[in-house]
């Protein structure tokens, strides 16, 4: 296994009186795609939010590339190289696609030239976004919005991309296309942690997988291992 990029150890987190995460352990090796699967309410989104600093940790640690990001602000997490593509995409609906992408580079300090180059890179990666750049983001289809959300995340030049619910509400053809794009990005060196409801797609995309249940990681291993695991097949894949 390659060097660890993200290391979550014994993480506890929640909202108000409700504790959601009960000592989560998870690792993302550098240069890998890792998926996080589990039923609704297992705590996947909460884990993502805790990693990117949107909610505080109540215990445990989040380490990223040798840096301690436990309880870091979202700004710091992003500056350290973690970009979050949230569930439901959360675009700025009444702003143009172009402005949405530029917002992704909000924290960058490497100058307009570099940002413009990256914008061009995003348009090359998702040509539809170039066509739609002047249009309000909220008027696009779900797939286009997801592309916009991923591109917005990439505009922050992350080392780790967190994607929450990649395929939610998207047509299968679009999901395949997005997966291809993510693989291409991964080949260029981007590490990805993706939350995915569709376990078959997730195991197909990722090299490693973590299974969450009621706030804990209950199972982890290589995707091939999990795909062959009878319990996983039973619970998530159906009898194939």
């Amino acid at each position: 296994m390659a060097e660890t990029l993200l290391k979550v150890a014994g993480l506890h987190a929640g909202y108000g009186d409700v504790q959601v995460l009960w000592g989560v352990n998870l690792e993302v090796p550098r240069g890998e795609i890792v998926c996080l699967v589990g039923s609704n309410g297992a705590g996947k989104t909460t884990l993502m939010r805790a990693i990117s600093g949107l909610i505080p940790a109540r215990g445990g640690t989040v380490g990223f590339a040798g840096e301690n990001l436990t309880n870091a602000s979202p700004e710091r997490a992003l500056a350290a190289g973690i970009a979050h593509v949230p569930e439901g995409r959360r675009l700025f609906a009444a702003m143009s696609v172009r402005d949405n992408l530029l917002m992704g580079a909000y924290l960058r300090r490497d100058g307009a030239q570099a940002v413009a180059e990256d914008l061009e890179r995003m348009f090359a990666m998702f040509p539809i976004l170039r066509q739609r750049q002047g249009q309000d983001a909220g008027t696009m289809s779900g797939g286009e919005q997801q592309m916009c959300a991923i591109a917005r995340g990439l505009m922050g030049r992350p080392r780790l991309l967190l994607i929450d619910e990649l395929s939610l509400g998207l047509a299968p053809a679009i999901v395949d296309q997005l997966c291809d794009t993510l693989r291409a990005l991964n080949r260029e060196g981007l590490s990805i942690l993706v939350v995915e409801q569709d376990v078959a797609t997730a195991l197909d995309l990722a090299s490693h997988a973590f299974v969450m249940d009621t706030g804990r990681v209950t199972r982890s291993g290589s995707s091939a291992e999990l795909r062959d695991d009878p319990a996983i097949r039973e619970a998530y894949l159906g009898s194939i």
């Binding site: 949107l54 979202p74 500056a79 959360r90 609906a93 702003m95 909000y106 924290l107």
Partner: peptide, 19 residues
């Protein structure tokens, strides 16, 4: 610009590093 982002989607603005 930041305020407009907050108006449209505060959590997204938060996520992108807007204070």
């Amino acid at each position: 610009f930041g305020l407009r982002c907050i108006q449209q989607n505060e959590s997204a603005a938060d996520m992108l590093g807007v204070d």
